[in-house]
Design a protein around this nucleic acid. Structure first.
Length: 312
DNA sequence: ATAGGGTTAG
């Protein structure tokens, strides 16, 4: 639990604790020993499964999903894919990872991928920019009679938005609505983000209005993305009117909001006005970060007034 | 029980 660079989440800890509480004293000693031991060796997952086996605790699909997640977080993508293949009963290369049950033995033990396991892998494929394979995964799920859930769709929509494929993202959003799944505010943020990046500011504004009408509360990240779109397209008036709307909606702007606005003003050659925003954010108790200063310094630099750049 | 989620510079 303590090894590695990934902090366990509360729920994970609860899981381990509940596991722990089911053990007798000797077994607890073994687990503690295992944990201590894991700090000194690399193959912690193998060890963990090994001790589980010794203790007669059978891993479930959740155990393996948790392991897949851990591998993804640590960038051990190959391992993640292999465990998933093993869950599907596909023969995997008999190497060190298969030693403790990552093999087609899993199917015999009744370990089959769930929607959650698929979601893990679909997300991983998007992180690796392997969108078409992610699509195949969804089809594979559906062929097996599994139903993609809201999380599956959020992964897909966000993935396509990040790669700039707005069309595909909107098609998926329609599909979600058709299926009666309620998109979340994060889904809409992804869509506003992609519209803003693709200069579709009218559509982005319309979408925000539609969302608000639906009763979904606008939030900071969503509005920041929209403000950035307007700044990038030189519509500073609209950007600032959104800032005022934020205040009205009691959504408190943060350093990202102000950095975005400062950048917009710098881009328009209004470095002094951008500098005023630095004071304004300080007055409002928002702490400028390194991006705030970089933005102003490079704004001055572009104009060649190095003295002012140093004053920032 | 495990899984997803967003914004700013260069």
């Amino acid at each position: 639990m303590t090894s590695g660079n990934v902090m366990p989440k509360t729920k994970t800890c609860n899981e381990l604790l509940s596991l722990f509480s089911k053990l007798n004293r000797t077994e607890r000693a073994w687990v503690l020993y295992a944990d201590m031991f894991r700090l000194k060796i690399k193959s912690s997952v193998k060890e963990f499964l090994g001790f589980m086996e010794i203790l007669g605790i059978k891993p479930t699909v959740v155990t393996y999903s948790t392991i897949i997640h851990g591998f993804c977080l640590r960038g051990r993508v190959g391992g993640a894919h292999m465990i998933f293949s093993a869950m599907k009963g596909r023969a995997v290369q008999p190497d060190s990872y298969t030693a403790f049950g990552y093999s087609d033995e899993m199917v015999k033990k009744g370990i089959m991928p769930t929607v959650s396991s698929y979601n893990l892998l679909i997300h991983e494929l998007f992180m690796e920019a392997r969108a078409s394979e992610a699509d195949c995964m969804v089809r594979e799920m559906e062929e097996k009679g599994m139903v993609p859930d809201a999380i599956t769709y959020n992964i897909l929509i966000n993935g396509y938005c990040r790669s700039g494929n707005a069309k595909k993202a909107f098609i998926l959003c329609d599909e979600v609505l058709r299926k009666g799944i309620e998109p979340t505010k994060e889904t809409y943020t992804s869509l506003i983000y992609v519209l803003s990046k693709r200069k579709g500011m009218n559509e982005a504004d319309d979408l925000l209005e539609k969302i608000l009408r639906k009763g979904v509360l606008a939030d900071l990240v969503m509005l920041n993305a929209l403000i950035d779109g307007h700044c990038a397209n030189g519509n500073m008036e609209r950007a600032f009117s959104l800032l005022r709307e934020m205040d009205k909606m009691k959504v408190h702007p943060d350093e990202v909001t102000y950095n975005t606005l400062m950048q917009g003003r710098c881009r328009a050659g209004k470095v002094e006005e951008a500098r005023e925003l630095l004071d304004e954010m300080k007055r409002r108790g928002i702490k400028p970060d390194y991006i705030s200063y970089n933005t102003l310094i490079s704004g001055h630099n572009k104009r060649g007034d190095m003295n002012d750049a140093f004053k920032v």
